[in-house]
Nucleic acid binder design. Structure first.
Lengths: 208, 208
DNA sequence: ACGCAAAATTGCGCGCACGCAAAATTATGC
DNA sequence: GCATAATTTTGCGTGCGCGCAATTTTGCGT
């Protein structure tokens, strides 16, 4: 009963922050305005989110978390773990979720938002680890956490590489490397991890 | 010539911050005091370090970075990449560097310092990636970065697991899991990544 | 030695994150 | 219904991170 209102104000703050940031740009929105738009005190805002950017990013991050876990669990058990995870994660960046693509653009443009989004990727690691254990019953808890964290790290590397290419536009026009599309980069970054993912599935007696 | 003084003030700030934090505890030291101890303005402090904790952690982190890279490069080329990296990283937590062990204890105790130290682990990833490419000439740049980031992620997981066990002491005395010693945890966390590390070494024709 | 351009340091101001305690809101006992 | 206990919200004060512009310091050319 009381939980409902907490989630309500939470989502109100998230949507308000995202909307205002899209309208005026991320740097031209003060915390007081977000709080006022959600009908709460500025102090209350910091009871829900530890930073100004977190409210903007939290929504899309949580959305992505459920999407990956669902994608992992949806794959048939016949496919290898590596392909399963790679496809699930790459799917995150081919099919944009129910959020406007402008949001991702804005996050990519602002350094502060990028950093916060990278931090948010860490949030996804825990549900991912649970999804991994759910799919492979014999998997160690520690192993699952490590693999999930490794996947998150690979995504971070891919994002960094992608941004490196897209932002170097102003000077030396025509000399920029437009950087491979994001899904390809994510797939390439995830590729080196497939041996570890496949080796983790507890089936050592099936190969010979 | 001017570089020298910059590094001098840098190290002065680092050592002053570490010393003061060890003396009074991390929460009882203000930025102004660190700056004053180093003979600079408080504003100048923030030209070198973006946060108060960063100065405390930066020293040990940089130290560790050179230690790992050296350890990786020191292994004979005959050993597999997986064993090389695992031994090098585990060595970081068996042999304490030239810093007092009380520093690591303090970092482990303060949540803010822990978070900053985890961030600092990210700093080590880039030199590690360079060491990997130096050891395996045919290695892709992206692959090296991904593997280094994965190793960093595994270390993060190990640290989190370790702290989980050591802090749950007050209630239910006698029921705590004292948590395996850190080196063992790090080795266990790194184990799932060895297939990926070994597979990355470009020697696909040697196995048959 | 002198002056000049480049770089570093400093002071100032703003916005933000957060601990703390008071006030308001909600759930629970009779 | 009302009193009471438990949460949640809020105001306030403090320290901090950082952009900006003025000031000082450094290195170089002549």
């Amino acid at each position: 009963m009381r939980e409902r209102k907490k989630r309500a104000t939470r989502e109100a703050l998230q949507s308000a922050a995202l909307r205002l940031a899209l309208e005026r740009g991320p740097d031209n929105v003060r915390v007081e305005e977000i709080a006022q738009a959600a009908g709460v005190s500025p102090r209350t805002y910091n009871n829900y989110f530890a930073s100004r950017e977190q409210a903007i990013v939290a929504g899309v991050a949580a959305d992505r978390a459920v999407t990956v876990t669902a994608a992992v669990l949806a794959r048939p058990t016949g496919v290898s773990l590596g392909d399963t995870v790679v496809d699930a994660v790459v799917g995150l960046y081919t099919d944009p979720g129910d959020h406007p693509p402008a949001a991702l653009l804005m996050i990519a443009a602002s350094p502060a938002l990028r950093a916060c989004y990278v931090d948010a990727v860490t949030t996804i690691e825990e549900p991912l680890a649970e999804a991994l254990t759910a799919r492979c019953p014999g998997l160690d808890r520690l192993t699952a956490q490590v693999l999930a964290a490794a996947v998150g790290a690979a995504v971070r590397v891919a994002l960094r590489q992608w941004l490196h290419g897209t932002n170097e536009v102003p000077a030396m026009a025509g000399f920029v490397v437009p950087s491979r599309p994001l899904p390809d980069l994510v797939r390439a970054a995830l590729a080196p991890l497939t041996p570890a993912l496949d080796a983790a599935t507890p089936r050592p007696a099936a190969t010979p």
